[in-house]
């Protein structure tokens, strides 16, 4: 289920443009995974509308991909872009922490 869904245009947007390339690792359709996916989508629509793409990787199907991103905990959200690489674990239910973890400042709050 390496399904990409990028509702807001191209994933290959210019890196420095504040485009977010996120990868979510899950293991099967567990409650935590589903919660994480739901939370992530909601969160991105709220704060990163139009400048993000999400890649969901199910390690149950592609276990060989776990080592590459040093995945231990499930679910893990990896911010590939912008650098530096960030890891956020958990079901993303704590929006405040996700914001801090992804180093996101909502557009409207920018000075």
């Amino acid at each position: 289920m390496n399904d990409e869904f990028s509702p807001a245009g191209e994933p290959e947007a210019e890196p420095d443009s504040g485009h977010y390339h996120l990868r979510l690792y899950v293991a099967g359709q567990t409650a935590k995974s589903l919660a994480a996916m739901k939370n992530l989508k909601r969160f991105c629509e709220e704060h990163l509308a139009g400048r993000y793409d999400i890649e969901v990787i199910d390690l149950m199907k592609n276990p060989q991909l776990a080592a590459g991103d040093q995945i231990l905990a499930i679910p893990t959200l990896v911010r590939r872009l912008p650098s530096p690489l960030k890891r956020i674990i958990g079901d993303l239910s704590n929006t405040e922490k996700v914001l801090v973890g992804l180093d996101i400042r909502p557009k409207d709050s920018e000075p």
Binding site: K32, A35, A36, N39, A73, I74, P75, T76, L85, K86, R87, I88, I89, G90, D91, L92, S93, N94, K97, V98, V100, G101
Partner: peptide, 8 residues
């Protein structure tokens, strides 16, 4: 590198 945001 790890930020915990809920259950895992």
């Amino acid at each position: 590198e790890i930020e915990e945001t809920g259950e895992y």
